[in-house]
Design a protein around this nucleic acid. Structure first.
Length: 646
RNA sequence: GCCGAUGUAGCUCAGUUGGUCAGAGCAGCUGAUUUGUAAUCUGCAGGUCGGGGGUUCGAAUCCCUUCAUCGGCUCCA
């Protein structure tokens, strides 16, 4: 007998060779129907794999990620089988499970094209196959055998993959008439895959390399119950309503015009107000935190970017330099602010006592993003960074980092952005020569970042090899309405620019020393930040950010005079207020202004006019009772003060 | 840039196999109504069906091309 240890610490004995599924069945047949994968001795495996020795066992139900992973990975194989039956000779790339569902990259061959219109037929075939309760069987094969199988099939993508695998570690999975090279694990059979939805098709380069052939990627999602699928589709539908492009238009925040150019956002009055609120807020904080604001031009001599090295690296892919008419000098639209800031640093000598020098600018930069990249406000060709550079001594690096992390946490909290992730990017330990700067400095900088994050209790994932060539960095990521990740804030150590611009300071030893530079943005770009903010709030901004704080709604035109007095009073009190004097019923006015996400609706009828009060209704909540206009103004000021403290 | 899809009034969408197919709702403007916490009623106006070519007796509808947008891939200083 073998001893199996369960997550709760209990131990039970079973016959050697028993599978996880059989164990589940012995515990309860119902449990067996709800588990999709097992972790045996910390390795996720097929439920059907036999266990021969003492082991720890975790059975995974749908709520566990490994269960969904096996479920969706199996679904990808199911889709592949359906595809092969509909498109004989189709070739397969890779088909993994992803965060929400799965995809498979395929080469239909023969000039065949798979489009959205073909998805229902594939879906139908999948359902038929799933209902056949096809068993997934695992087989270990030699490299040669695997190679022979896929060579015979003529699938050069699989043979390419097999060529890179080590002999002895290759497994195949078969269900029905379909066999795939695969590490697994898989479901015992196709039967649990009951609800199936293929979502979309897209092009994807083989192995993610744009020099390779473009394959057709089909995205899908499956569930063990139709209800779960329906819920997911409803979620997607709801998320689309929060799309910042849609809300931006509805709330008249921003627009794009083909006459101005793609990827060049035009901020409408309300959007500009929102933007300005963010800038004012940030500026006040920066001043409190020892930053000095600078302003630099939108263009710079091309030689500036040659000095910085950016011209060499990105010049060809940028908006091209423009020449002056007489002297023929070359200027570029500035793709970043740092070279300008380095020149400001160099405008006067610095003492070690002056450092850190924190220089900030809301700098608008221009980058040529490929046409297919443009995406609402999140990916544009003109955007404003809340950029800053800290010029400091090496011994100040960690403290500077901590101060910036603290600032990021403070700002994100102020805008109610509570779900974000942080990633520390270090250099590739096997490839040190591609980085600039001494080993010693790198080591210090990397440790400074890791320690700073630790001391600020910031949860991070550390990714070696992702650092920029000029220094390690810490990035902050948030998700949009449908779960796509976008990078917002970034903190980057830079050893490169101080060298290139020959930045120095006088040390206590009266020698010249090289400062270290930290690039840092918190919003990242105002455009992207506002996009994320819109999607996270569905346009219901915190009061301090809302372009308009209140709207006065007279119940009939008889009360317009008093309504106007309230309107004037509030605007004179610096509370941006609207008035709705249309001859509509109050229900209609409330509805329209609720949809415009105006935070406060002030209803004024006979009672209010006589008593000189306003009836306050909070957006999304309802009636808050009546009060004097002065009291309402106080309420607004207090609420804002509660939202943001400096 | 690459693959696929889409493009009809400010917005959301109808327009069957090419033949009164240029429509609806909302928004806008008229007029009536004077309203108590999420949609009052009437009338009017609004589109060379993204642009340009072509096929046809006839094109929103079919073909080509171009622009833009959407979903991905690649890229992202």
């Amino acid at each position: 007998m073998i001893k199996i240890t369960f997550p709760d610490g209990s131990v039970k004995e079973f016959e050697p060779g028993i599978s996880s599924l059989e164990i589940a069945e012995q515990i309860s047949p119902r449990l067996a129907g709800e588990v999709y994968a097992a972790t045996v001795n910390n390795e996720v495996r097929d439920l059907t794999r036999p266990i021969y020795a003492d082991a720890s066992l975790v059975l995974h139900k749908w709520d566990d990620e490994p269960a969904r992973h096996a479920f969706w990975h199996s679904s990808a194989h199911l889709m592949a089988e359906a595809l092969e039956s509909i498109y004989p000779g189709i070739k397969f790339g890779i088909g993994p499970a992803i965060e929400n569902g799965f995809y498979y990259d395929v080469d239909p061959g023969d000039g065949r094209v798979i489009t959205d219109a073909d998805l229902p037929a594939i879906e139908k075939k999948m359902k038929e196959l799933a209902a056949e309760n096809l068993k997934f069987t695992r087989r270990e094969v030699s490299k040669k055998e695997a190679m022979d199988i896929f060579t015979a099939k003529g699938d050069e993508y699989k043979t390419e993959l097999i060529g890179e695998l080590e002999d002895g570690s290759i497994t195949l999975y078969t269900q029905g008439n379909f066999t795939d090279l695969c590490r697994g694990p898989h479901l015992p059979s196709t039967a649990p895959i009951r609800a199936i939805k293929l979502l979309n098709v897209a092009g994807a380069y083989w192995r993610g390399n744009e020099k390779n052939k473009m394959l057709t990627r089909i995205y899908g999602i499956t569930y063990p119950k139709q209800k779960l699928l329906d819920d997911y589709l409803v979620f997607l539908e709801e998320a689309r309503k929060r799309d910042h492009r849609r809300i931006g238009r509805e709330l008249e925040l921003f627009t794009f015009s083909p006459h101005v150019g793609m990827g060049l956002p035009l901020w409408m009055p309300k959007g500009a107000e929102l933007r300005q609120n963010l800038i004012d807020f940030m500026t006040r904080i920066l001043k409190k935190r020892g930053y000095q604001i600078v302003t630099t031009p939108h263009i710079g001599n091309v030689n500036l970017y040659k000095t910085s090295g950016h011209y060499e690296k990105y010049g060809k892919d940028s908006f091209q330099p423009m020449a002056t008419p007489q002297e023929g000098e070359q200027f570029m639209l500035k793709p970043m602010n740092c070279p300008h800031h380095c020149e400001i640093y160099n405008a006067k000598p610095h003492s070690y006592k002056d450092l850190p020098f924190r220089m900030a600018e809301f700098g608008t930069v221009y980058r040529y993003e490929q046409s297919g990249e443009l995406h609402g406000l999140t990916r544009v060709r003109s955007f404003t960074q809340d950029d800053a550079h800290h010029f400091c001594r090496h011994d100040q690096l960690k403290e500077e980092f901590k101060s910036i992390i603290d600032l990021v946490q403070f700002i994100f909290k102020a805008v109610n952005l509570n779900e974000y992730s942080a990633q520390i990017s270090l250099r590739d330990p096997d490839n040190r020569e591609k980085y600039i700067g001494s080993d010693e400095n790198w080591e210090k900088a990397e440790n400074a970042i890791i320690e700073a994050a630790g001391e600020k209790e910031l949860e991070t994932t550390v990714v070696p090899g992702e650092a920029a060539f000029y220094g390690p960095k810490l990035d902050f990521m948030v998700k949009d309405a449908i779960g796509r990740k976008w990078q917002l804030g970034t903190i980057q150590v830079d050893y490169n620019l101080p060298e290139r611009f020959d930045l120095t300071y006088n040390g206590s030893d009266n020698q010249k020393h090289r400062p270290v530079m930290i690039h840092r943005a918190i919003f990242g770009s105002l455009e992207r930040f506002i996009a994320v903010l819109i999607e996270n709030t569905a346009g219901k901004f915190p009061l301090w950010l809302a372009p308009e704080k209140a709207v006065v709604l007279p119940i009939s035109e008889k009360f317009n005079d008093y309504a106007r007095k309230v309107f004037d009073f509030l605007n004179n009190s610096d509370i941006c207020t609207l008035i709705d004097e249309r001859s509509e019923k109050i229900g209609k006015k409330i509805r329209d202004n609720e949809l415009k996400r105006i935070p406060y609706l002030l209803i004024i009828g006979n009672n209010e006019a006589v008593n000189e009060t306003v009836s306050v209704r909070r957006q999304g909540e309802g009636d808050r009772g009546t009060m004097k206009p002065e009291e309402f103004a106080d309420l607004v000021r207090k609420e804002i003060a509660g939202e943001i403290t400096f």
